[in-house]
Design a protein around this nucleic acid. Structure first.
Length: 292
DNA sequence: TTCCAGGTCATAG
DNA sequence: CTATGACATGGA
């Protein structure tokens, strides 16, 4: 296994910064499962076939990668929303009249939705049911190590659907997926027949995209909403999970609402960037910043 | 030891 | 359409 060769550290030029206090929540807050704190002040993650490092040098967020291509730089800029498209949408959220949302925005300034591949988000959230974030990250890591392709050292790509479909019971068992193994393999079997599924799905309007995703085994309303939001960048998608139920029932007074009703409220109340609002509320609630 | 986790699915009313 | 359990695994 070759050892990694790194590009020199360079500033990650973001139109709107990710403050140091937001970075851990940004990288390991439950939307991406491929980042981990490698040392104090150095995060490492895998994006596609590239291993990426991030650190703060003083007030400057810097990156370095195993991939020195221009394409990787473009990928990074997109991944971290370097142009700040989301920040402009955050400005249009109803934070002036919504004190709960206001608290959430203040708790993690600069937080954004990472623009991951649909493939990555689907694998991650197929593993997510009834699991804590830390355990999801472990499962995804095991999948990469067991069924992915080696990059260098102990870094691996995520497995293809083909690799997952062909995996042995022993291999899947070693990933400690529990009953989610059937979700992954079932979805893999449906997707190996349509290798261009990402582009096909991308053409669909959001409502149809969510419905189509739900035809895959292990993908219900919540996972579909997450993949739609994180993997396809549909900011209006509003995943309702246990934390969102907590927030909406307790802080917004919506007791007795079904998940479907809560989703409709979220979309109506937060509008075109409901999913971005959701991410702020989720992060803040999960880390006890909303006082609920 | 018991409980619960960024839910989904099958089944029953 | 809504309500209820089972489901694998591991950490608190």
């Amino acid at each position: 296994m070759p050892s990694l060769r790194w590009t020199t550290w360079r500033p990650l030029a973001l139109q709107y910064p990710i403050p140091a206090l937001t970075l851990p929540e940004q990288l390991d807050g439950g939307q991406a499962f491929r980042w981990r704190l490698y040392q104090e002040n150095e995060w490492r993650g895998v994006i596609g076939r590239a291993v990426v490092r991030l650190r703060y040098q003083g007030a400057t967020l810097e990156w370095s990668s195993s991939d020195d291509s221009v394409a990787l730089i473009e990928k990074l800029n997109d991944y971290f929303d370097a142009k700040g498209a989301q920040a402009k949408l955050v400005e249009k959220l109803p934070w002036q009249s919504d004190t709960v949302l206001y608290q959430a925005l203040k708790a993690y300034p600069g937080l954004r939705i990472l623009r991951q591949d649909p493939h990555e988000t689907l694998i991650g959230f197929l593993c997510s049911s009834n699991k804590r974030i830390q355990q999801i990250r472990t499962m995804v890591s095991s999948l990469a190590q067991t069924l992915g392709e080696p990059i260098a050292e102990d870094y691996y790509t995520l497995p293809s659907w083909s690799a997952i479909a062909q995996a042995s019971a022993v291999q899947l068992k070693s990933c400690a997926l529990g009953y989610r193994a059937n979700f992954l393999q079932g979805t893999a079997q449906k997707l190996i027949d349509r290798p261009d599924w990402e582009n096909e799905f991308r053409q669909l309007p959001t409502r149809e995209l969510i419905e189509t995703l739900q035809t895959l085994p292990g993908v219900g309303p919540k996972v579909a909403a997450c993949v739609t939001l994180f993997g396809f960048g549909r900011w209006e998608s509003f995943p309702v999970d246990t934390w969102m139920v907590q927030v909406l029932t307790q802080a917004y007074g919506l007791q007795g609402y079904s998940a479907k009703q809560l989703e409709m409220f979220g979309r109506a109340h937060f509008g075109e960037a409901a999913g971005i609002a959701q991410q702020y509320l989720f992060a803040s609630a999960r880390t006890g910043r909303l006082g609920i």
